[in-house]
Simulated scan of single mutants.
Amino acid sequence: MNVDVVRGQAGDASARFELSGLLAMRCYAALSIFLVHLIALPKLPIPTYLWFLPAHFGNGVPLFYIVSAFGLFVGYRGRIKTRQELREFYLRRFLRIAPLFYFIMLFYVPFCWTMWGTTIPLSQFVSSALFIFNFVPNHVAGFVMASWSIGVEMAFYAILPLLVFAITGLARSLVLLAVAVFLSANWDLAFHGTEGALALFGQLSLMAHLFYFAAGIAGCYAWLGLRRTSPQIGRIVFAASLLTIAGLICFASQIAVLIGTMLGPSGGSGVKAIWAVALTGAVVGVSLYPQKWFVNPAAKLLGNASFSIYLWHPVVIVILDRLGLYHTIYASFDGVSIPFLASLIATLAVLIPLSLLSYRYIERPGMALGARFNRLGAA
């Protein structure tokens, strides 16, 4: 589903909601994750004033989850009632993800051999192709870099029709959010002290991230209740959320200590829950009133290609690092500010055209194929 325009449900099924704010959020989520990996993969030195990038911009992944649940509930609530509608939902979701993901999987066969001299085990290739790797402890991270979140997303798609049936209003969505936070906290406790593949499974499984999706669902119902109010409400919600996010960044250690003192080993889940609420508030605010400085043409364009940006960016970074680009840039300038900026610009100069082409020639045909199959099935 394109989250820019989604069809309304539950009493206003003929309505079309312009949700360009969700596209912009997808852009910023993808770019924030890109920045984290641009620093981490080639181990680039960064200016001290950018300390918050590696520390907090990984929250782009939870933002993706929140936007996904928000957009899907706006579009599918009240729609998945028959076997045909259930079939249409799963087919659309599969063909939204699979074409590009399968292309990337095949690309990784020569890529891994060329870069590291490694081969991909057949069992891991199959679990990724079947989108079941989130349920396999030794495969949960995926062999495609950063694909662990795709496993989480596909697992959420599997249960979404049940959630659409059960969660029919704001009150129920808040109950779901509370239950999801409780389950996540206990899931973390269950894996506390584990190491290796088991610890990774605990961190990357759907259960550890379910409350982000629940927050997005609650955000959808909050938006539905507020969307006919004054645009000023959207401005206020968005501004308050940005201030909260800034506070979480500036006082992260103090907040973590405070919540850790209150909740003990479950304190990490408490901090994540606060982040989920703050990010959801931003999504609700930008959906109520998409301010032009934030929801601009570039953000919407890259929001459409955000899935391509997400899957291609580690590949681009690794290749440019192997070619020695970052080493050459850092050796050519004094300090770290200018080299980091030059590295950022050079990487985006490769990544953005590649992602736009990937979206145009792989993602869009896949989405069109899903729509065509569904029209044939309904005929």
Rank of each mutant, 00 (worst) to 15 (best):
T261P: 03
I249M: 13
R93H: 11
Q84W: 01
L204F: 15
A146Y: 02
D321R: 06
L248D: 09
F340K: 01
H313M: 10
P137M: 08
A30D: 11
G202Q: 11
I352Q: 02
A10Y: 01
S123M: 03
G117A: 13
S205Y: 05
Y221I: 00
I362G: 07
G225M: 00
P297F: 09
F52Q: 13
S149F: 04
P45V: 04
P265Y: 09
T119K: 05
A199Y: 06
W116P: 06
F333N: 13
I317T: 05
L63T: 14
A276E: 07
G281M: 06
S173F: 09
G303M: 13
Q291K: 01
L226A: 00
Y212K: 04
G202V: 09
A10L: 09
A171I: 09
V179L: 15
S184W: 03
R87K: 11
F294C: 01
L258I: 10
L176E: 05
I120D: 05
T328M: 10
L44E: 09
F191E: 09
V152A: 07
I150R: 04
F165V: 07
V277T: 12
S20D: 09
F135K: 07
Y326L: 12
L130C: 13
V144K: 05
G324N: 11
I329H: 05
I233R: 13
G58W: 14
L302Q: 08
T82L: 08
Y359F: 15
P54V: 07
